[in-house]
């Protein structure tokens, strides 16, 4: 029988993959992908806890996370398009206007 811990550890591993993506990737679009991975990892944890605790609150939160993710993608992609129009690239190494 699969326990709650297995789900949580899976969630942790997926989240870490997301973290690696976030810090490794230089392409903004790939950064977005990595963020999606992290959000999904969180969703798995919520759904698992909801199921094992017999409490719907976890699922509710998962819904809202899905909604947030959808909004984020909509706005974020719009911004990405603007950036691409302006600079012709999505590589983070080219955006260093805030260099101190």
């Amino acid at each position: 029988m699969v326990g709650l811990n297995e789900y949580l550890i899976l969630s942790a591993i997926l989240f870490s993959i997301g973290v690696v993506g976030v810090i490794r990737r230089k392409n903004l679009l790939m950064l977005f992908f990595a963020t999606e991975i992290m959000l999904n990892a969180a969703n798995i944890a919520f759904a698992a806890i909801s199921s094992y605790h017999n409490d719907l609150t976890g699922q509710m939160f998962a819904f809202f996370i899905v909604a947030v993710a959808a909004s984020e993608v909509a706005v974020g992609l719009g911004l990405l398009i603007l950036i691409y129009k302006k600079y012709g690239t999505l590589d983070l190494d080219n955006f260093t206007v805030l260099k101190g």
């Binding site: 990737r25 983070l92 190494d93 955006f95 101190g100």
Partner: peptide, 9 residues
């Protein structure tokens, strides 16, 4: 100041 590379990454 070296930390502030301006690079989001």
């Amino acid at each position: 100041r070296g930390m502030q590379t301006g690079n989001l990454s």
